[in-house]
Design a protein around this nucleic acid. Structure first.
Lengths: 340, 340
DNA sequence: TCATTTTGCTTTAACGATTAAGCAATATTA
DNA sequence: TAATATTGCTTAATCGTTAAAGCAAAATGA
């Protein structure tokens, strides 16, 4: 790391000006009429001296860092973990750096992260926004900072967005239970005003209404993100005491925790109560009953989000708006059965 | 992001030189005899203009980026995901930025990542090294680049390291099975030359030897990282056909996949074959039998690694060597039973 | 042959910060 | 009162890169 070779070193070695070296190494040699001969010499020496550019210096001039900030709820959550992984790969191949940050669904933390990343001069953001962060998003929008929302969106804001049709997906999930003869379908979601959760809820209600299953009794349980364990245990108990024959979990973490609590109460419960979940969780493989789930095209989401973002960063300020709605799929069979 | 305020703007507004502003905002006002009055003015104006420093410019001068590179096998793996999360938090509070990269246990990818991060001028590395990366680590060492190995280490290299005593932990895990009357204890590990896996293997062998259970028949199955599904299915089948009464999995991913295959073969298998795993996996909660596991102090590992690294970055080149060996624990009971 | 164009390069300024060195004006000491 | 010390600031160099503008020398055209 010490005594790094700079453009100057190469220039001295070859006997030309720094500018010429810069032109050649940036592929602007032709354009600036650098002779083939000199170009070759420069490239050779650069290789010999193991040159790589100082990005701080470059950023200082270009005002671009080739770095983007990714803000999710929690990188340790399997859904966001895999999303992050796909974004990492896509960014790596585009020669972009990603800084991952977890907001813990907390607006204050989110604000601090935004400041942190802004100070780091990121060129843009990919954000899975926490509840109540609308004003911060609005501010980014006003400042014309390149940004793509992912997973979560705000109905009233016109920002780039890559995600799925939560209403339809929820309809799909709920209908699966209905088609399997379930009559009392409970559901467990987060106590949150995020619109995508709202859509999932609406999809559930719509499906029940269409099937004439909407009950007077409230079979909907809303759980606090910060108090998952306790509230889930309670919710499960209550739903069971209400004699539900199915439970639809609105996220994979909810499903993971909910299933855990269900099994604690009764090992054979999944033969009595059908379950559907949003998103996959490796843990589902451990149950003796297959848990159907809504599969999001996470790789696709990651790629699209990154592509939109990078395009906007490159194109500058007058970018158009992209709202991408990807297809989900309801997985009802184990994909990798005993494969030998 | 546009029209950012610079030191110059503040200097002009207050009517002083840029230098003075720099001194004050870096807390070097006292030392450089800036009058209290001027200092206050500078601070006020900086706040009013919403100043934050341009890190590219600063890095150019200081040759420090306050950025570290974290290289793990796969950020989507629960073990590394949670490690990454703790490192993220620790770094955030120290005002360091972390760039996460996944090597996929592939030396070529590892090399490319190393280049990528070096080009990004990271100040140092935290590395869970893939098999065969010893020479690259040696090179970093030779270049005196601050670095801490985590989880995996190289017996022949004298580098900083934070991890656990794999031999002892393995002994612990295997003894647990022995103490539970298991006589034919199979084990499944990766086909890898990484020393920490070697230690785990040695611990297993030592435990069997001490108990006089070392068999003529080979109960050890080695799995290729890249072909987990197929090879695991085979390994499980073979171990079962050899009539093992226990299986010890050397990582949580191995356990996850192995248990899946075991259950596919026989839903009640865990009542016949005892299992112990290295590292926790949320999926274990879904089994009707509790799976004991070796718990690594991940948060502690993250903190120590970051502290050692940051200290070395600050102190410069003549740092001492740290090898930290943290205690593990064998968890034999579900910690969060129905907690209501 | 002289004006014009093209070729191949260099000069110079800029990006925004840090930091050693310098320099008046004022205060202190002998 | 003159020499010295302190206070409060500024100047200038530097980090490594980009890029607009400029400038000889060689090639082309009339």
């Amino acid at each position: 790391m010490k005594n790094k070779t700079s453009l100057k070193d190469i220039a001295n070695a070859v006997g030309v000006s720094i500018t010429l070296v810069s032109y050649v190494l940036n592929g602007k040699g032709e354009k600036n009429r650098v002779s083939k001969n000199t170009a070759k010499k420069i490239i050779d020496v650069a290789k010999k001296l193991n040159y790589y550019p100082n990005l701080s210096a470059r950023s200082l001039v270009t005002n671009k860092t080739r770095t983007i900030g990714l803000i999710v709820a929690d990188i340790a959550n399997p859904f966001f973990g895999s999303l992050a992984r796909f974004i990492e790969d896509a960014a790596f191949s585009k020669d972009y750096t990603v800084i991952f940050c977890s907001s813990d669904e907390n607006v204050n933390k989110f604000d601090r992260i935004l400041n942190f990343l802004t100070t780091r001069q990121v060129d843009g953001f990919i954000i899975a926004a926490p509840e109540g962060s609308g004003d911060f998003i609005k501010k980014l929008e006003r400042l014309k900072i390149p940004m793509v929302l992912i997973d979560r969106y705000f109905k009233e804001l016109k920002t780039n967005f890559v995600g799925i049709d939560n209403f339809q997906s929820s309809l799909l999930a709920t209908n699966h239970l209905i088609n399997n003869n379930c009559k009392k379908i409970g559901t467990i979601l987060y106590l949150s005003k995020l619109d995508h959760y709202g859509d999932r809820y609406d999809g559930y209600v719509e499906a029940l209404n269409r099937a004439g299953l909407m009950n007077k009794i409230e079979l909907v349980k809303r759980i606090n993100y910060g108090n998952l364990n306790r509230e889930m245990a309670l919710a499960i108990k209550e739903l069971i005491s209400l004699n539900v024959d199915a439970i639809y979990f609105h996220t994979n973490i909810l499903a993971q925790e909910g299933l855990k609590q269900m099994i604690i109460l009764d090992k054979n419960i999944l033969h009595k109560i059908k379950v559907v979940a949003f998103d996959q969780n490796p843990a589902f493989n451990f149950l003796d009953t297959f848990v159907p789930y809504v599969l999001q095209p996470v790789a696709e989401m990651a790629n699209q989000a990154l592509t939109i973002l990078c395009d906007q960063i490159d194109e500058g300020k007058d970018f158009k708006l992209f709202k991408t709605c990807l297809q989900t799929e309801l997985i009802t069979k184990s994909a990798d059965q005993f494969d030998i």
